[in-house]
Simulated scan of single mutants.
Amino acid sequence: MTSIVWQRRRAAVGSTWREFTRNRGGLAGLVVLGVVVVLALLAPLVTDASGLDVTKAAGQRWQSPSAEFWFGTDHTGRSVLLLTWWGSRISLLIGLTATVLSVAIGTLVGVTAAHFGGWLSAGLMWVTNFFLVLPSLVLAIALSTVLPRGIGTIVLAIGVTSWASTARLVRAQTLSVEARPFIERAKVLGGGHVHVIGRHVLPAVLPLVFVNTTLTVANAIVAEATLSFLGLGDPSMVSWGSMLRAANLHGAVSQRAWWFLLPPGLGVVVIVLAFTLVGRALETVLNPRLRGDR
């Protein structure tokens, strides 16, 4: 019985992948993400992190792109290419970690509210609506201001303020799943809450959660860049947001150092677009109505 279940799951995964590859936008986004992730992982192996230290800058201040420094140098003489390369690691790390926290909270709240109902559902939805009404970025700025600066603070600030939309989405999907006959059969046969949620509800909800995760990562990366640009990030770490802040503070525009502004800005745009393309493609694949199936 178990082997049959796994065979069906493998067949479903294969079918999903074949459908996904037909979406050129999603496939292009996946390729871009793969390249960026591989480069970020290879940074410690193929580059020297000492170049990030302002006391060991190898170039002149505001040096334009050249054969020696492909992306030019910043106000301290550091390579902008090196800063952008290492900055991708922090931006991706914070974006992915904050998204996992946000989606985990939203999924837990949404499934609990839909499954148990009653006063518990009312209370959880009241809290969810509260977080939906208040701008998540404002709440993240408030948390980042009162807590010690660091990567953990940014992850916490983004994660605990951006879960509400996921909670409502998961709650709606859970209510739809629990209205189906097989859930009633499971309960009649003696299935408890853990069995119903773990064996029936979550497998049906997780595809939607996965799609929402890819879309949430893009928002988390933008939020991290915004917080770092406002000076609420980790001052000891280089990220795309902190590079944009440094360019603004040290007059990159007045120095006409466009090479210090474009790489981190384009990095944020490209990675957000890639995650959005992948998320939309997955949404189309996993939702038959969106791909025109009848």
Rank of each mutant, 00 (worst) to 15 (best):
T16D: 15
A157M: 10
P65D: 04
V285P: 00
S144N: 05
V211G: 13
R78L: 04
G241H: 03
S79V: 01
R24I: 10
A28L: 15
F131M: 06
T166I: 14
L227T: 00
W240F: 04
L206A: 11
L132V: 04
L215T: 01
R8P: 00
G95K: 09
W86N: 14
W126S: 14
W62C: 00
G233H: 11
L277T: 03
K187V: 11
L244I: 05
Q60M: 10
S136E: 07
F20H: 05
W259N: 10
V146M: 13
I154T: 14
V155I: 15
P203Y: 06
T128G: 01
I271P: 01
R78F: 05
F182A: 02
L156N: 00
F260M: 14
L230M: 12
S91P: 00
Q60H: 09
H195R: 13
M237Q: 13
R24D: 05
V31N: 07
S228E: 13
V196C: 05
V13K: 07
S136C: 01
V146G: 05
M1L: 10
A12M: 11
V46N: 13
P203S: 06
S64N: 05
S162Y: 13
W240R: 02
V211P: 07
S3L: 15
P44H: 09
A223M: 11
V5A: 14
E224M: 09
K56R: 15
